[in-house]
Design a protein around this nucleic acid. Structure first.
Lengths: 233, 233
DNA sequence: GCCTCTTGAATAAGTCGTATGTAATGGGTT
DNA sequence: AACCCATTACATACGACTTATTCAAGAGGC
């Protein structure tokens, strides 16, 4: 109901994933495939496929004779972008944003240092363009435009690092930034200091200044953490 | 075939996942469900469930009329422990180990710093015990015992950081360490310097010395990276 | 009499074959 | 060249059968 459908599978998966990620189903709770099939008015086949996917994310465990049991949070594949999205939509978004931001503060400085060493001319150009875009949208309530450039900026840095594990965190960072902008109502324009740091970071990468890039990214991360502390204590 | 079965689903999933992760199926290659059903001698239902799981890992994309297409590596969920295991079993293990080790070098120092601040008495006790275990197994070709303590050590640090994103990297680190020990044939005993660093790191965490813990962990990471450069150029 | 081991029945997921719906592709027609 | 239709391969669905696990009842030993 009410969702654009886009496939029964997707619909049921999203609904169940959201419920579990939101904590509506406490760990140890057992679901049964027949029940779920009835509840969502789909066949058991669809439910079974959904369960298989949730199982691959370690959100649930399916055992014969006992049913589908919800696993404790510590066992979830919390790096799965889908899981992150579900959790950010749930009730413990603040805690989640904090965890992710701490992760960023560890990874992004190192990635920026590598980017300064490995970035191609295209990377540098795109980075500078994003920085300029951030400057242009940093005043006058153009939050959506700013967000888009911010996401692109960090994605480029992660990609330019040349490390695929870093690159794949682009989606995570995008979710974090989007969550920050959309959920904790940002009335104010972005911090001018942050904008400046991004511009200087683009310069540092272009000049191949690895240490500078690392230090500047650390400052950006510290700012993000501080912002979290202020807005969501 | 010849695997202990443990469920048709698991068997087919593992086989297909390995093939794709190993690069046997180049990006863009199209698989068809009934072909796979024939090849593995299972019903299409099983194949469909497997495809759904692979799809949730972004390894493949299933579209009507065209079939199941293999996605390029850059889109895979490379943080999924299952995917990591498949890739480490494949041919580009060296590259993979390097990427993961760089990730470790970014994350673990920060995690260690946090651990020094947040570790409980239990954490410290377990950490010291692991360090002692590493010392005890560091000579005389007790590689398996050493590996076990090494994995436990890093897992405790990540858990003690109090950040769930860090904690969930425990499995990744375990895979890396296991891969290093098992695949690049280690004839020699572990580097004595590394053992010492672990002992000192346990001390630093116990004393709440965040900066020391971070610095020591960085040194451990540098050692691991150097080791990779030497053994797999 | 109490505890343990075995056995069997009940249960819920696992597997399978088949039928029907649906969308994208490619070729043929106007 | 634009449109339409047949083909194709996945999507959804259903129901029967299989298998593994659990729980409990009963037999046996202490």
């Amino acid at each position: 109901m009410t969702t654009p459908a886009q496939g029964l599978h997707t619909h049921v998966l999203d609904a169940l994933g959201l419920e579990i990620a939101a904590g509506d189903c406490p760990p140890g709770m057992v679901l049964r495939t027949d029940e779920l099939a009835q509840r969502f008015e789909v066949s058991r086949t669809v439910v079974r496929e959904v369960i298989r996917v949730l199982e691959s994310m370690h959100l649930v465990e399916s055992r014969r004779r006992v049913g589908v049991t919800v696993r404790p949070t510590e066992e979830w594949n919390v790096y799965d972008p889908q899981v992150i999205r579900w959790r950010l939509a749930g009730s413990d978004r603040p805690r989640q944003l904090r965890s992710l931001t701490v992760l960023r503060s560890a990874v992004e400085p190192v990635a920026a240092g590598l980017a300064a060493r490995h970035a191609t001319a295209e990377h540098c150009a795109a980075l500078t363009e994003c920085a300029l875009g951030m400057v242009a949208t940093s005043r006058g309530q153009q939050l959506e435009g700013y967000l888009r450039h911010d996401i692109a900026f960090h994605r480029i840095v992660l990609n330019a690092s040349g490390n695929e594990m870093f690159a794949r965190l682009g989606d995570v960072v995008a979710e974090v930034l989007a969550g920050r902008t959309h959920h904790q109502v940002m009335f104010e324009d972005p911090d001018p200091a942050a904008v400046t740091l991004h511009v200087r970071l683009a310069e540092a990468v272009r000049e191949g200044d690895a240490e500078g890039a690392e230090r500047l990214t650390k400052e950006i991360a510290v700012g993000a953490l501080h912002e979290l502390d202020v807005l969501a204590p």
